[in-house]
């Protein structure tokens, strides 16, 4: 416990230092790092979401940039397929494996097998004891920040519709737990029970109809103050539903920073209140750098945080643009 606290403090300090000298370090390391002659296996549960696709692309681009060969596997959101791909991947004996998201309960025994086979394992946005390094955003911060923004916009009281369909996904668990923790200080903000379930696929449509139903159930204006989701695809459906119902007093909150949602937050008339924008492409690239460092015999911390930015109604015009530019540059819509 104490050790992990120490580790956290150390990592936060490291992250701060790294952020300060980010430009200097990355240009210096880029020349040293190499994956020449190395094969890197990459397994992603799916790439149907902006975040997933950007991270998956960042990993592949970086491996190629460093001269390595990449075995890229997209499980198409099917657990069975991801397990089969990992099993075959272990037999292929790559120099390292980078795993991106998925159901931890399903994955953990197989991640263990990767380590048992002596293959270094790195993860993207997936906290597991089996990984040498997990590269991700600081989801503790993100979760607290978006929750505080929501509470502030609500004036410290009101009812919140919460999508909680992916508590088994580690980052969603952290963000949801942070939301709950923040709300302990604001007893007048209440989560409407039962919570809503976001789903994959048909996330937007399903969120739209869920929120529409709830608004119909609570027809008085002001009876619902906000909608929260641990990612931003349900936020799209929720925002559309709120606007269609003419209940613009309800604001929506989400995490990830898909270009579509950033544009919504930038639009002063939209009900999208805020979104915590991550840098998935950078996260993917950074995880490859960590793998390259490890393979070169350097020490690698157990986790690396890539900075994220809270985009709200006040700062959207200024802060949103760089993210939209990055998306355009990577050629991902």
């Amino acid at each position: 416990m104490i050790r992990s606290m120490k580790g956290l403090v150390k990592a936060l300090a490291l992250g701060l230092a790294a952020a300060c000298s980010l430009a200097a370090i990355s240009s210096a390391n880029a020349e040293e790092l190499s994956l020449k002659g190395k094969r890197i296996g990459v397994s992603a549960i799916g790439t149907d979401h902006y975040w997933d696709l950007m991270a998956f692309k960042g990993i592949q681009d970086r491996v190629k940039e460093l001269g390595g060969e990449v075995i890229a596997l997209d499980a198409g959101r099917k657990d069975q397929q991801q397990i089969a791909q990992l099993q075959t991947l272990i037999a292929q004996k790559p120099d390292a494996i980078i795993e991106q998201l998925g159901n931890l309960e399903v994955l953990n025994p197989w991640l263990q097998k990767i380590r048992d086979a002596g293959i270094p394992l790195f993860t993207v946005d997936t906290a597991t004891p089996h990984a040498i390094n997990n590269t991700t955003s600081n989801n503790y911060n993100i979760g607290a920040e978006i929750a505080l923004q929501m509470v502030a916009d609500m004036g410290g009281k009101g009812n919140v519709l919460v999508f909680n369909g992916f508590y088994s996904v580690p980052v969603c668990k952290i963000r949801y737990d942070q939301l709950k923790y923040v709300l302990t200080s604001f007893p007048d903000v209440k989560i409407v029970e039962p919570e809503l379930r976001d789903v994959i696929p048909n996330t937007v449509q399903s969120a739209y109809s869920n929120v529409t139903d709830m608004l119909t159930k609570s027809p008085e204006k002001g009876s619902i103050g906000a909608v929260w989701a641990c990612w931003d695809v349900p936020q799209i459906g929720a925002t559309q539903a709120v606007e269609a119902a003419g209940r613009t007093e309800v604001k929506t909150y989400g995490i990830d920073g898909s270009p579509e949602v950033i544009k919504m937050v930038m639009d002063p008339k939209s009900s999208a209140g805020a979104v915590a924008a991550q840098q998935p492409y950078e996260i993917g690239k950074t995880s490859v750098d960590n793998a390259a460092k490890y393979l070169a015999g350097q020490k690698v911390p157990p986790f690396t945080f890539v900075p994220s930015v809270l985009i709200n109604k006040e700062n959207a015009a200024e802060k949103g643009k760089p993210f939209l530019d990055a998306a355009e540059k990577a050629g991902v819509k």
Binding site: R77, K78, Q80, I83, E105, V106, N108, V199
Partner: peptide, 15 residues
Amino acid sequence: TVSRLSASTPGSGEL
């Protein structure tokens, strides 16, 4: 399938 995935997961219909 439960043995292979150590769990029951949504999305079996895809098979």
